[in-house]
Amino acid sequence: MSHSAELKPLFYNFAALMVLLAITIGMSYVDLGAFNLFVALLIAGIKTFLVALIFMNLRSTSNVSRLAAVGGLLWLGFALILTAADYHSRGWNEAQAHDLIEVEQARP
């Protein structure tokens, strides 16, 4: 069991991360519209996954620790999604709101 063999995953992982870094920079120059954000976050997500799995040893740690990691992200998801639900749907009843203003103004 030589040390260099054991260390190999770490180096592969590092190489993969550098490749992903290059891709994310490259992709930012390609105009995909709203998909740019999606691609950037996807690549960041893959990088995070690799760092967590290999560098942070999540692949061989206890299930509870994995749960803690996933839990943190899940709860962040709750915060993002429900906040987004508010901001995204705020404009939906704008038409009625404008009507109201017109009614107010139309009053003698």
Binding site: T61, S62, V64, S65, A68, A69, G71, G72, L73, W75, L76, A79, L80, T83, A84
Partner: peptide, 23 residues
């Protein structure tokens, strides 16, 4: 290790507040 991971979950939410603001 578990203690550290739980702390990191806390940290995710700590930065998370700012990420919500960013979003």
């Amino acid at each position: 290790i578990l203690g550290m991971w739980i702390f990191l979950a806390t940290e995710i939410l700590f930065f998370g507040g700012l990420f919500v603001g960013y979003a």
